[in-house]
Nucleic acid binder design. Structure first.
Lengths: 321, 321
DNA sequence: CGAGCCGATAAGTGTTCCCTTAACGCGCAC
DNA sequence: GTGCGCGTTAAGGGAACACTTATCGGCTCG
């Protein structure tokens, strides 16, 4: 029984699939499957079993997951504690959904970095559906994205981070660009350009696509939100984007907002982390920071005049998934 | 960072020496030293350093020992949990000082085994000074011997187990055997035959030897208490032993009690375990059992007529140290 | 100053881990 | 049925682990 094996098991149990666990750990599926096989053999229990809907825990696995999760959490805590004692900078690993990571995330993280010199911050991108597991396994300290359900063990705490407005956009030459007020259903026949977060069930864009009943064939998923917007500029599709990122593009008329009825949609991004008793000190500092005016200002200001596609965040960004 | 390394570190930190940790783990000193070296290198901190009085923790080590201890405890808990879910018998690892292990320990454990069919009990021998570390690291679930200080992390709970009387004995032909009332200081010139527990600072026999100022050259440490008594039967030395074990030997006049003033000494053995919230279920069951009349009866009854040297406990006995 | 104790190190060995690529088995959908 | 997605197994290699015996270095104590 090794820490690696326990880690693999916990992630499979939490994420419900070997594939997702492997992606999170940046290893291949057989690596995870093999670690799981070793643990199964050692403990003499299947722990998790395939079902049509994913991987389901056996009674033994259900019992183990809580204990194993504590073990891997403590192992991380041990390393962080030693680092701290030695005076090394504390580490804060932030994850964000791709929409946050391409909008207010880097600016927020950069502002926090500037204020807290002794903290080493990294920002990663992940799907909203995997955020809770990352936080609980201490693979991440804070998560930026939609509000996450806090129930579970250990519990999570979500707090409002940033109110934003979602709008629909198209190239100036698009047929709908010159239209007057549009009914939402007129968008059903359009080709949609979306970022990677739209593939995630918890994303608001995904919710819109589902509500309108857009067939998958009409949805082009791009590797980044910026790429989706770039394709929209030069193509004949439409996209959904955060309004305040658009001000400059609109000024240059690269994209125009579509006057769809019911838009802009008022939405909220949240910051989520473990409870105050179990999270790292840097996470608490970050939590305090996001409530300050400096944080709000940083999230509103920085991207003015810089198209997202060219934006290079001034913080170290690690892509974890 | 592996579980083995953390275990080695915790034991070195708790026992204050590599040698003791190695003995407890039944490996050689280099094995422990090497595990420690790997952990030191991995974390970049000496963790423990040699001092004239033993191994002292660095600030980092002090911080780590609590976390590491939790990790190894949880790892054991994980294995126990799986075993329990699978319906396998629960395991209870008892340790006792050699005096208990050679007197009431086996009978007590056997009586508990007979009552609790679903518990797999093993009894080991260890020094009183190492008991607290064994309990805290969950290498043992219950400890039988002297009362242990309960402070520390996690705290320990001691409860009275058995009141016994310590007497001094010699062979019938010994010069002192025919004497009348003896002053304690008349024993100073004698050759003492003692069991392994006398080498332990926490042992009452050790305390007596120290109080009388017996030089080391007059103390023969035998590998078992029974061996010390056997040597006393045929030699010209004296020994200290538990009174109620002696009844039959006295009947056969193999050994006679010396009428030393102040004897018999009224002493108490205790049972010690972790607090109710952190100990295994079997430990709690054992704790309840030792309070019952059946336990008291078992401890008084079984060895009547059976010299300790010939006694074969009906339970599996593992020697850990 | 030599003896003895204790921890660290050297050298070596068998085992386990951990990861890879490739191929296989199985359930499910079009 | 025929793909296709997903987990598992096979095979293999490199590294780390965990242990041993033997030796060294530093320290204390007679």
């Amino acid at each position: 029984m090794t820490l690696t094996q326990l880690e693999a098991f916990v992630l499979v149990a939490r994420l419900g699939s070997v594939k997702a666990a492997a992606r999170t750990l940046t290893v291949t599926e057989p690596a995870v499957s093999s670690a799981l096989a070793s643990l199964r053999h050692h403990l003499g229990d299947p722990l998790v079993q395939r079902t049509p809907t994913g991987m389901a825990l056996t009674p033994g696995g259900r019992r183990l997951v809580g204990i194993a999760s504590q073990i891997v959490g403590l192992a991380r805590e041990a390393e962080a504690a030693i680092r701290e004692v030695q005076g090394a900078p504390e580490q804060l690993r932030a994850v964000a959904t791709s929409d946050v990571a391409e909008s207010v995330g880097p600016a927020l993280v950069a502002a926090f970095t500037a204020r807290s010199k002794a903290v080493d911050v990294s920002l990663g991108v992940c799907a909203a559906s995997g955020m809770a597991a990352l936080l609980r396994d201490r693979l991440a300290d804070v998560a930026l994205g939609p509000r996450l359900p806090g129930d579970g063990s250990p519990p999570l705490q979500s707090a409002p981070l940033f109110r934003y407005r979602l709008v629909f956009v198209a190239a100036p030459g698009h047929p709908l660009a010159a239209a007057g007020a549009l009914e939402p259903r007129t968008l059903v026949d359009q080709q949609w350009h979306v970022g990677p977060d739209a593939a995630d069930g918890a994303s608001p864009v995904r919710a819109i696509l589902d509500r309108l009943g857009i067939p998958e064939g009409q949805i082009d998923v791009f590797p980044s939100h910026a790429a989706a917007l770039a394709a929209t500029e030069h193509g004949h599709g439409i996209a959904a984007t955060v309004a305040h990122l658009l001000s400059d593009d609109q000024g240059r008329q690269a994209l125009v907002r579509l006057p769809v009825r019911g838009t802009p949609l008022d939405l909220m991004w949240h910051v989520t982390m473990l409870g105050a008793d179990s999270r790292a000190g840097a996470a608490s500092a970050f939590n305090r920071f996001v409530g300050t005016p400096a944080a709000t200002q940083a999230m509103h200001a920085p991207l003015r005049g810089v198209p997202p596609s060219e934006f290079r965040p001034p913080v170290h960004v690690t892509i974890w998934s």
